[in-house]
Write a protein that binds this DNA or RNA. Structure first.
Lengths: 130, 130
DNA sequence: ATCCTGTATCTGTCAAGCGCATATAGATGA
DNA sequence: TCATCTATATGCGCTTGACAGATACAGGAT
């Protein structure tokens, strides 16, 4: 059962994929953590609001990115052994993580400019050629 | 001498990188070939106009993508053994390649929407929080 | 003649990113 | 008891793409 998950292997029929942007989950998770302290499973749900609805993210990817962010000092974590359900690792963004997100934003604005330039070039080219 | 080439390894200081978009070279090369028959070395130069000025593309990447496009029937090639310089492999886009580019464009428009949504969310969040 | 530079294509290798499968485990309800 | 939901984690393998280097033709300088 492939659970309706989509693939986007190069060379096959391509479908729109938000993960077209390399490592995009990293800034998205940082922004979500900038809004509020949270944990992996919850963030996985919150991602749906960011264009990952049609193309769900694998949980392992989220957990690994969170760990990687922690190793680099961009987030901190603590265990929450609440009364209901299994323990959760709660993540909190740091000041370094805040700066890092800022650099990501600059990077993505540049990506946006490049993408726009490409799409405009395509459109104007297609207006001329048939 | 690292020839001024920039890195964008995760976790180091990030710099704007047009290759942030996964496999972006593929549609760019297809659009360039849609404009005119061309060869790898020439395309490598033409890429500079597409946001790769600051962050030059490695030639091996270009050649491998062209080969991959040919294997999948999106371009064809022929050798041009001209009088000046070494032989060049001239690439030409096919009808399938044309369709494939069209699908790429749809994909990139979706990526553009997701990216915009994210940047707007960031901006409005930052307006509220300090 | 030899070397350097520019043009032109191609291969080997390695690390990172990420999808997929799977393991583990507490809590809840049938 | 067993399935399901919540929650986190590891192993594996494929693809991308950076980096290094090989090959080769041509023209100009030494």
């Amino acid at each position: 059962m492939s659970s309706g998950r989509r693939r986007w292997r190069a060379g096959q029929q391509e479908e729109a994929c938000p993960r077209r942007i390399h490592n995009f989950l990293e800034p998205v998770l940082l922004l979500l953590l900038h809004c509020d302290e949270s944990h992996g499973y919850d963030l996985l749900e919150a991602l749906k609001e960011f264009g990952f609805e049609q193309n769900p993210v694998d949980s392992s990817t989220v957990y690994r990115i969170l760990r990687s962010l922690e190793e680099r000092g961009f987030v901190t974590s603590r265990w929450e052994t609440g009364d209901a359900g299994p323990a959760r690792r709660l993540y909190l963004i740091t000041e370094n993580g805040d700066d890092y997100l800022g650099r990501w934003i600059e990077d993505l604005r540049e990506t946006d400019r490049v993408l726009h330039h490409f799409l405009e070039t395509y459109d104007s080219h297609m207006q001329v050629h048939a």
